[in-house]
Design a protein around this nucleic acid. Structure first.
Lengths: 127, 127
DNA sequence: GCGATATTGATATCTTGTTATCAGTAACGC
DNA sequence: GCGTTACTGATAACAAGATATCAATATCGC
């Protein structure tokens, strides 16, 4: 039978607190604040089971490692900061994307990724 | 001094003929039709130099290997077929994406990826 | 509290995409 | 046509992300 462990709670909590998609390594850092000593293997294991049970969903963006976010967040897209490499959730979605599909193509999904600088990096001018 | 070789021409030709972003392996297949015996290492080498001189640009999409397309094709996006995994170019672009960026965020680029079935796979029902 | 066993942490291993190595080949200025 | 040397093909090596291994530990029904 599945057991509730401090490690699983820490992973879930790290994702909830962040409110944005995190890489396994970012999750590790967040979870270590709650459970010192937690290892990356455990993070991957927990993410795998949470993805399987649907409580967490993978977020794949161009050219970077898979991130994870809590499920049931509604349709949304992402903003990828070029300064800190963090990914943020953005509400809203361009209407009528189907008109861009070539004739005869069947559209069943889409992904929009915005690039630029988050409020912190825009001010700091870093990166 | 740089030399023109049949291999370089074959890689370029494969990209031009396809008219869509190709993976290094797809390029290899296309180039082998022109130059039997061409190897994957050469494809990578040629792509690297063409990317460096700007005649070819890398196309990174979520969850798949980097593809390459000829440069100077103007602003466009891509359609990723779930059936054959081929990626097609799509013209057009949703207007006013800046309104989706959170307050204080500076937008300097975007990527739109459409998913579904290309005309061939839509008819075949395969995948 | 006890015991069965699911889970963990450290690390080795695997996978996929890409690059380096190196001897043999071919492009091109002459 | 020749010679120099950039280029090629086969394959070993790398890199990064993810998974497997295994002894030690912690959870939870009793």
């Amino acid at each position: 039978m599945e057991r509730n462990t401090r490690q699983k709670s820490a992973v879930r909590e790290a994702l909830v607190v962040a409110g944005r998609p995190l890489t396994p390594f970012e999750i590790l850092e967040g979870a270590q604040a709650l459970v010192p000593g937690i290892g990356i293997a455990t993070v991957y294991r927990v993410l795998k089971s949470m993805t399987a049970d649907g409580s967490v969903v993978p977020v794949e963006l161009p050219g970077s490692a898979t991130r994870y976010e809590t499920a049931h967040r509604g349709h949304h897209h992402h903003f990828h900061c070029r300064g800190c490499e963090r990914v943020y959730e953005v509400a809203g979605c361009p209407p009528d994307l189907a008109r861009f599909a070539p004739p005869g193509f069947v559209l069943d999904g889409h992904e929009v990724v915005l690039y630029g600088r988050c409020s912190t990096c825009a001010v700091a001018g870093e990166g």
